[in-house]
C-alpha cells in the first residue's frame, strides 16, 4: 500500500540531503509594471518543510503558485525533481498531478461530494479503479478526521473541515511535494488549529512542504527553514529558531516587530 505516511517517514533523515526536489533559479515575474518576483533562487530538499512568510504583497503567494505553473514566469527556471516545468499540455498536467496544492479558499469541487472530491483525481488522472480510489480516499479522510462527512457536499462542511478535505484531495494524488497557499487565512480562528495540526502531522511524516502562511506558531513547530520575502525578493532565510530570535535584515526585524508585539 503506497501510503504517504509510511513511505515518506522512512526517508525523513536521508531525504533532507541530495538533489533538491524543487529548484528555482533566477525567477522573475511581472504583473504589468509591478515586478512581483525578483531574481528568486530557492531550493527545497526532499522531506524539507519550508515556510514562506512576509508582508502582504511581497510575492509569496505568487511564488507558491509558480511552482505548479498556476502563474507563468517571465524568466528563470523551475525544476521539479530534476525536470524543468513544462510550458503546457499533457506534460504540464502530469507534473501538476505530482505537486499537491492547497488553496486559501479551499476550492473543493462544489457539485461533488467530499468523497468524490478526493477520488476524482486518482480515478481520472491516475487511472485507479473506483474501488481502489474510494478505499484510499476513506483512509485519507479518516487521517484528516472528516471520514464521517464523506457523503456530504462541501458547502455543508465548516471551513476547517473543507480545508482538511482539500488536504486529503491533494494527498490522494501521492504528490512529491505539497504547496500550501495561505491555508488558514480564510478560516475562523477556532478552526485554524485543526488544519495546522493536520499540517504538522504531515510534516512530521516527512512530506516535502512549501507553506505560505501568517501562522508563526506553525513555522516554529514544523518548519525546517523559514524564507522571508519582501517586495518580491527573498530577503533572508534561516532555521525558525535563528530567524525568529535573531533576524538579520531590517525588513525582517520590522516585520517581526509588527506581528509579534501585541
Amino acid at each position: 500500500m503506497p501510503n504517504v505516511a509510511s513511505s515518506a517517514s522512512a526517508d525523513t533523515s536521508a531525504g533532507t540531503t541530495g538533489e533538491p526536489l524543487v529548484r528555482m533559479t533566477g525567477v522573475n515575474k511581472h504583473f504589468g509594471d509591478l515586478h512581483v518576483l525578483r531574481e528568486i533562487n530557492l531550493e527545497v530538499r526532499r522531506g524539507e518543510v519550508v515556510v514562506v512568510i512576509g508582508p502582504s504583497g511581497s510575492g509569496k503567494s505568487t511564488l507558491c503558485r509558480t511552482i505548479n505553473r498556476l502563474e507563468t514566469i517571465d524568466d528563470g527556471t523551475i525544476l521539479i525533481d530534476g525536470k524543468e516545468l513544462p510550458a503546457e499540455g499533457k506534460a504540464l498536467a502530469r507534473l501538476r498531478a505530482d505537486v499537491g496544492m492547497v488553496f486559501q479558499s479551499f476550492n473543493l469541487f462544489a457539485h461533488k461530494s467530499v468523497l468524490q472530491n478526493v477520488t476524482l483525481g486518482p480515478i481520472r488522472v491516475r487511472g485507479k479503479s473506483s474501488a481502489q480510489a474510494k478505499e484510499r480516499a476513506m483512509e485519507l479522510l479518516k487521517r484528516v478526521g472528516v471520514d464521517n462527512q464523506a457523503a456530504k457536499l462541501p458547502a455543508q462542511l465548516s471551513g476547517g473541515q473543507q480545508q482538511r478535505v482539500a488536504i486529503a484531495r491533494a494527498l490522494a494524488m501521492d504528490p512529491k511535494v505539497m504547496l500550501f497557499d495561505e491555508p488558514t487565512s480564510a478560516l475562523d480562528p477556532e478552526m485554524i488549529n485543526e488544519v495546522l495540526d493536520t499540517m504538522v502531522s504531515l510534516a512530521k511524516q516527512g512530506m516535502t512542504m512549501i507553506v505560505v502562511t501568517h501562522e508563526m506558531g506553525f513555522a516554529r513547530r514544523a518548519a525546517d527553514r523559514v524564507v522571508f520575502m519582501a517586495d518580491g525578493q527573498i530577503v533572508e532565510q534561516d532555521t525558525p529558531e535563528e530567524f525568529f530570535s535573531h533576524p538579520k535584515s531590517d525588513r525582517a526585524k520590522d516585520f517581526l516587530g509588527k506581528i509579534l508585539n501585541h
Binding site: 501538476r96 498531478a97 483525481g121
Partner: peptide, 8 residues
C-alpha cells in the same frame, strides 16, 4: 485552478 492542480 483546483482542477488543473490535480492534473486535469
Amino acid at each position: 485552478e483546483a482542477a488543473r492542480a490535480i492534473g486535469l
